[in-house]
Design a protein around this nucleic acid. Structure first.
Lengths: 119, 119
DNA sequence: CCGAATCCCAAGGGATACTG
DNA sequence: CAGTATCCCTTGGGATTCGG
């Protein structure tokens, strides 16, 4: 049997999973929640550029995928806490590998961009 | 000095770099070019869902970031070959780590989605 | 405090047709 | 062969306001 096919192609479900989990705000949220559980406004403060709408959407998506969980703390006033799940923790290492790559290679990338834009 | 800050936050340039390099079609293109150099229509055949417009855009972006290079082979008729650069090759390992994660965890993720959608 | 609802806009991507 | 050009439309995101 030809296992190379599986390594070669990227199946749509895997591609879509990465889209859901590596989007614009997810990595920042993940990093925060790996440090400690956070309330909604904790996250807003930690990631000032995110709007409430986008934050809600991202949190819902991560929750649906089992990466984070939403815990109701109190009712009056409403208190909600988000925390990372065990499944979510397994995502951290791969993401760190990727970030290490980005940190290490950014200078090379920027040089390439300048060369391209000059030509 | 507080190095934890650097690990904790995700700087905008790194975040944008990942956006440019992990977008919808880049991973598939990277996988193809890691196997062998490809012509434009080779890539179209290998990735049937991509339109010429999106393929051109993605190839230009990857080229600008120094991940792939564009080689002119002939002029009449025009022949162009894309190949991965040494810098581009360094991206493969991190991406594979990520794909391994997606392949391993997809069942758990799908279970979480069903549970969420049911509730 | 934690969002939901609304409006608006720009960018991205598909389909199709065409050119050097 | 290797793209460009055009059209169109959906989606995502920001800004803002409102509600439980």
């Amino acid at each position: 049997m030809d296992t190379s096919t599986d390594e070669f192609r990227i199946a749509t479900p895997h591609r879509e999973l990465l889209d859901q989990v590596l989007d614009k705000w997810s990595l920042s949220i993940l990093n925060e929640l790996c440090e400690r559980p956070c309330r909604f406004n904790d996250l807003r403060r930690a990631i000032p550029a995110v709007t409430p709408k986008s934050l809600t959407a991202t949190l819902r998506r991560l929750e649906r995928n089992g990466i984070i969980e939403r815990q109701l703390l109190g009712s009056r006033p409403v208190a909600v806490e988000y925390r990372i799940t065990p499944l979510g923790k397994t995502l951290r290492a791969p993401v760190e590998v990727l970030l290490d790559w980005a940190r290490a290679r950014l200078p090379d990338i920027e040089r390439a961009r300048r060369a391209f834009d000059a030509g």
